[in-house]
Nucleic acid binder design. Structure first.
Length: 238
DNA sequence: CGTGTGATCTCCT
DNA sequence: GGAGATCACACGC
């Protein structure tokens, strides 16, 4: 971090993040990531994202409460191994036989916690992002064409738009190529907080308000309660 | 606009 | 065998 901004009495840091940015854990990092720019480079070009929605997940060794919704809630496995890397690494997983999702690993090495990047606004490489998303669609007519605000709305769409896969990005250092992260925080009054999307059981309920998003931003995904989550269906939303 | 379904990976029962 | 940190499509009201 190298600067400071202030607006209406709120001040926040700006600049390229360092490893300490990802400490002490995902719960403190998740809201701080909102508004920040995450870029991913590739042979096809660079795509830049302004982060608008995040979720925190804790795991083995974390100081906070036990998180039944986390991939690393109990132990290290082949899939979640990257969550145990030092802060500032990428954890990319494949799910539902279809989608990739990007997490930014927090906490010291051997302690598992991560921030799921759920949604954002594409601010660089719009054409490339469109190309990747449209290529993933089975059909594409004028009527179902993906709107720009939806290019990176939801973790699966976001990973697709940024060209992120488990094979090519899981376990990589976020402070080196092809990643680039610049913090540009937002006023606290613009941040909303609530239960996580699609997380089963109590971990998806009000006891775990670990989802953060920018109020009123059109790129934020819709809320959907998880199976058996103690949340009235179809209530809160971005 | 709401609900059901298929895609078929990784882990756990 | 079943569910999951998902998404887009098909259908019915």
């Amino acid at each position: 971090m190298q600067g400071e901004k202030a607006w209406k009495g709120t001040r926040w840091h700006t600049g390229v993040v360092d490893r300490s940015f990802f400490m002490p854990d995902a719960l403190s990092v998740a809201p701080r990531l909102l508004g920040s720019i995450l870029s991913v480079d590739s042979p096809q070009g660079l795509v830049g994202l302004r982060i608008t929605e995040t979720e925190a997940y804790l795991g083995v060794g974390s100081t906070g409460p036990y998180d039944p919704g986390s991939h690393s809630k109990d132990r290290k496995t082949a899939r979640n191994a990257s969550m145990f890397l030092p802060p500032g690494h990428a954890y990319v997983y494949f799910t539902y036989g279809m989608h990739f999702a990007l997490n930014l690993v927090c906490s010291q090495e051997h302690v598992a916690s991560g921030v799921l990047i759920r949604s954002g606004q594409i601010v660089q490489g719009l054409d490339l992002a469109r190309e990747r998303r449209h290529a993933k669609q089975s059909t594409r007519s004028a009527s179902n064409y993906v709107k720009d605000a939806q290019l990176a709305r939801g973790p699966g769409n976001l990973a697709a738009a940024m060209g992120i896969t488990r094979e090519s990005h899981d376990g990589l250092d976020l402070l080196a190529e092809p990643f680039h992260i610049v913090q540009s925080g937002v006023a606290e009054s613009d941040i909303a907080r609530g239960p996580r999307v699609g997380v089963a059981g109590v971990a998806g309920g009000p006891a775990y308000p670990w989802r953060f998003w920018l109020k009123g931003d059109p790129t934020v995904s819709a809320f959907r309660p998880g199976r058996d989550a103690p949340v009235p269906p179809g209530k809160p939303r971005g």
